[in-house]
Write a protein that binds this DNA or RNA. Sequence first.
DNA 1: CTAGGCTGGTTCAGTGAATGAACCGGAAGA
DNA 2: TCTTCCGGTTCATTCACTGAACCAGCCTAG
Lengths: 164, 164
Amino acid sequence: MALGKDYAGQDCSVARALEVVGERWTLLIVRDALYGVRRFSDYLAHLGIPRAVLSARLHALTEAGVLAKEGNEYALTPMGVELWPVVHTLARWGERHRSAEEMRIFVHAECGGRLADDATCPACDRPVRPTEVEMHPGPGALRRDDPVSVYLREPHRLLDPIRT
Amino acid sequence: MALGKDYAGQDCSVARALEVVGERWTLLIVRDALYGVRRFSDYLAHLGIPRAVLSARLHALTEAGVLAKEGNEYALTPMGVELWPVVHTLARWGERHRSAEEMRIFVHAECGGRLADDATCPACDRPVRPTEVEMHPGPGALRRDDPVSVYLREPHRLLDPIRT
DNA sequence: CTAGGCTGGTTCAGTGAATGAACCGGAAGA
DNA sequence: TCTTCCGGTTCATTCACTGAACCAGCCTAG
């Protein structure tokens, strides 16, 4: 992990975190894993990432303990699942400042209410684990035709495996 | 912003957000800006970033509306300040999984209690704006000798300008 | 008023990483 | 057995990051 990937000299946990998830594509892979994507070909088609880069990132994330490989599937470890608040907070910021219309809507499955920006449920007044979150397509969602995009046209529980 | 920086085809606000803050060094610049850094030379020395890259990032962030330049100082806009939950959530994840000891401690200035991982104050039971947050050095903090690091050996309000 | 230092950059050559296309080996189905 | 699919690896090209050198404007001491 020499020159170009790390942030040596930074006594900061943001830098430590970015050494794991800060490279190009990495956080989008984690996002897809939270959605339930597990297979190489599904990541590949849904992200439009070069195969070589996907391979490298999956291995690096596995090495770091964010993903675990079982058979041919890459799924999040508990450490990886804990990135959910990071991904959600970032998504909400992008939604507010960088998107014309909402693309994805996150709902607390038990009460049906939408999640607050900090990934808590305002109605239930508590933090919500990703397995309790249902994702709905929003009005800004595109009609892409890769298998994962087609699958996600329907509401879907986070972390529920997507096998196309 | 052609090839290599954007994530074209992703109908996802995470991708939109990463097009602004996803490049190498960018989120560390935002972190420093939240700490109160404003001057080119302070970012330079505190980050150990190449001058050319810092120049490019500051211009890109200004262009995107995350930073605003006034005179010779680059400070966060309201849109940039809203990245505080992202940075804090990521810092907490890194702290939990990637650091031996705590490097920085974030405290709600009004009540003296430490912030929860989602950047709320558990004691006051409400979200906390960055201007209400005081940052203290933790036991894992290094004794670096650049001006910003020296300045931050003392407790410091977020967004309070650092002029060395 | 001018010489030197400081701040805030730009330029440039070298290097490493991302890209996209081609290739490959194993497993499963026809 | 032949074919297709899946999960990669290899490779040439292009792009971005790096670090060092250079430079222009401002401030200040002499």
